[in-house]
């Protein structure tokens, strides 16, 4: 499954990093602690977080995650958007909270 395939079913808004929308999804990782993601997220996973500052792109890019979903309708900072476009890491937004978006994504990935 690619990032493009989950946009509609999960009602996600693509904020930036459009060039990475064909990234293949290998799973998901949920954390708001950057070192936790650095240590444990795997390549190709979608990272779900409430953090919006630019350091999430550095972490996402170093770990080669497939995309970042920002929860609860939070708006990422301009620096985050700029870096996401440079690194081609899609930043997606949902109005749902972490629990609910994770559940939906889990169900969707399970169907594959």
């Amino acid at each position: 499954m690619k990032i493009t395939d989950i946009i509609k079913p999960l009602d996600l808004k693509v904020i930036s990093g459009h060039n990475g929308l064909s990234n293949e999804i290998s799973g998901g990782y949920v954390s708001d602690l950057l070192s936790d993601v650095m240590g444990y997220a795997k390549e190709g996973e979608i990272w779900i977080t409430l953090q919006t500052h630019q350091n999430i792109i550095a972490v996402a890019s170093l770990k080669d995650v497939s995309a970042i979903i920002i929860v609860k309708g939070a708006v990422p900072e301009t620096d985050t958007i700029v870096k996401s476009n440079i690194e081609n890491i899609p930043v997606l937004s949902t109005d749902l909270d972490t629990f609910n978006i994770t559940g939906c994504l889990f169900e969707l990935l399970k169907m594959e």
């Binding site: 602690l33 950057l34 070192s35 936790d36 650095m38 240590g39 953090q51 500052h53 350091n55 999430i56």
Partner: peptide
């Protein structure tokens, strides 16, 4: 608050 300072930095360095 930025998600740093989880106390995992040095152990991540050791592990990796």
């Amino acid at each position: 608050e930025m998600g740093f300072g989880a106390g995992m930095g040095l152990s991540n360095m050791k592990k990796n």
